[in-house]
Design a protein around this nucleic acid. Structure first.
Lengths: 336, 336
DNA sequence: TTGTAAGCGTTATCAC
DNA sequence: GTGATAACGCTTACAA
């Protein structure tokens, strides 16, 4: 509404003086300071950050581009990010791409126009187009949750390979020999890494040829579909490894519809835990990832970059994944 | 990085001409247009929205200030908002207040400085300070989920009173006579309204004096604490009404620790459902609110305001709440 | 201790 | 069809 000029006029000083009061810069007599402060209060003056940003070339705003905030893993991630950002006086613009490369590009274009100081990106695909786009325009970027094959970018992610290995190992240790993997899209690094961990465990157990992988999307719908396919196969697997929480839910629906009980007839384990705030009755054996911490770390990394304290080399921070054994996994049913 | 001036120089035209190309305004010869477009492509030029906003006095950005995005109700709300906003080319800055009035004020100040076109606010308390602050500075605002007593503001919320009435009625119909309400903070309208609905149902049943209300916060922690208090009372209630999902989780923990089974020893019902994407085994009898739609409607209302198509009178949109009966509620245990 | 002028990147207005 | 100029609100020099 009112501008620095209005305040100046009311206080009978120049705009510069008002600016000095606002920013506590330079010398100002106690008396004028008070006059200015009063004028500010009377007018309800609020400095225009746009004008300021135009000069400083920084907006104190970052963009968070993820696939779907509705996935509790990403929700928690987002919370960690907003907490870390606001602590340093940064605002966060959030965007949902629904795994669409086009949406991602569109959002990137918008936030770059809006001159965000940096971008936190959960890339929708393995294309490095987005990273290139940002680099060309000098916008710092940290990748979240997912690697990008060829790109030299800062990345903060969970250890999908080790997590998948542990989870598969857990099933093998229980005695399972036919373990199906309901995976996400192979264009996404987490799906690739989870597949690798799964294979490594099978290989070690001399069961390489028993691998059975179904590729789908990281959605309930996707889990539902691939689980259907899996059930049609003979012999039926005795354990199912869902590559994320949504896939697990979709798979569980299929199993229920087929009258199969978990874990009696079939074990079902998954990547990604639910927050304890939503836990009624923890059921799934899962690999939990430190989502909140992941968000914090990524934000800190990005903000260090902005402050110019970043190491030259792109960093890759890989956070440990943790196996949490619960009731959805058990020994395979006795063979008939 | 590069500015409109750089593009102009490279294309051998003036900045104005470039501006005309970008915005498809005025007349331009096909030939110059092509030269300009090429220069834009070569430089990877992206218009600076800051400068534009400074002139137009609109940023195409809105703020979403809520208490905690981690609560699945708000997560879904946020998704509805972002979808509706991005559809119209608006970006969303999101902020978590954790029910703190101070945080709310701080965030409001920041986003007003950043010249957001409007604010979607889930007010942390019943104070109308925030609304006044925004009104004084000419920033349109729509309240979400919660009323503000004296304020004449657009509001989009669920029908807490009717929902609470239905939920209480459901328990009464099952035969319960001692129903405890574990409520949120009385400074928040939803808590007030849920209390009112609860009381209305009890009054109708001639059980006004049986009301037993515990005030806490809308958190797992809060639910845990009030549930403890409740259990200490004699005679113990046969049913518990948790005023939101988090309170229900906290209460459930207490009941479990006390060795009580739901619904055999005690019924436990709540406000707010979990999204179906997280439903493993729907257990809680709840009042579900159309969170996604609420977000959409609020955003549409705000954007209509910005477009100047708003009716003069502040609107209050109250969306229906729906009773979903599941397994956490049953008849009271037989008296000894 | 305070003020003036110039410029951040755009675009509306008015010339040519 | 195209260009020069001023203005959006602010702050860094540089003066006074």
């Amino acid at each position: 509404m009112s501008t620095i000029g209005d305040v100046a006029k009311r206080a009978g000083v120049s705009a510069m003086t008002v600016s000095r009061v606002i920013n506590n810069s330079g010398y100002i007599s106690q008396e004028t300071r008070e006059r200015v402060e009063q004028a500010i209060a009377e007018l309800g003056y609020v400095p225009n950050a746009l004008a300021r940003s135009l000069r400083f070339k920084r907006t104190k705003t970052i963009a968070l581009i993820l696939t779907d905030i509705t996935n509790p893993f990403f929700t928690t991630l987002a919370r960690g990010i907003e907490d870390a950002a606001s602590e340093q006086g940064f605002s966060v613009i959030f965007c949902n791409t629904d795994e669409s490369q086009d949406e991602e590009a569109e959002y990137l274009s918008v936030v770059v126009q809006k001159q965000v100081d940096g971008v936190l990106l959960v890339p929708a695909s393995s294309s490095s187009e987005s990273v290139t786009f940002l680099r060309d325009r000098g916008v710092p970027c940290v990748l979240l949750d997912r690697r990008l094959p060829g790109a030299a970018v800062d990345t903060v992610r969970g250890d999908s390979e080790a997590g998948a290995y542990q989870l598969t190992r857990h099933l093998l240790d229980l005695g399972h020999r036919r373990i199906a993997l309901l995976n996400g899209p192979s264009s996404v690094s987490t799906a690739e890494d989870r597949l690798a961990g799964y294979r490594r465990a099978l290989d070690e157990a001399g069961l390489s040829s028993a691998a059975s992988v179904y590729e789908g999307s990281y959605t309930v719908e996707g889990g539902y579909r691939t689980a259907k396919q899996m059930l049609a196969a003979a012999p039926r697997p005795t354990a199912v490894f869902a590559a994320n929480n949504f896939i697990a839910i979709g798979a569980l629906r299929v199993l229920r519809e087929a009258g199969l009980r978990v874990p009696d007839n079939l074990s079902l384990v998954a990547f990604d835990d639910l927050p304890t705030t939503m836990m009624i009755d923890p059921f799934f054996t899962v690999i939990g990832q430190p989502a909140y911490e992941m968000g914090q770390r990524a934000t800190q990394l990005l903000l260090e970059h902005l402050a110019g304290q970043s190491p030259a080399e792109p960093q890759e921070i890989v956070l440990p994944a943790q196996l949490i054994v619960r009731r959805s996994s058990g020994p395979p049913p006795a063979e008939i």
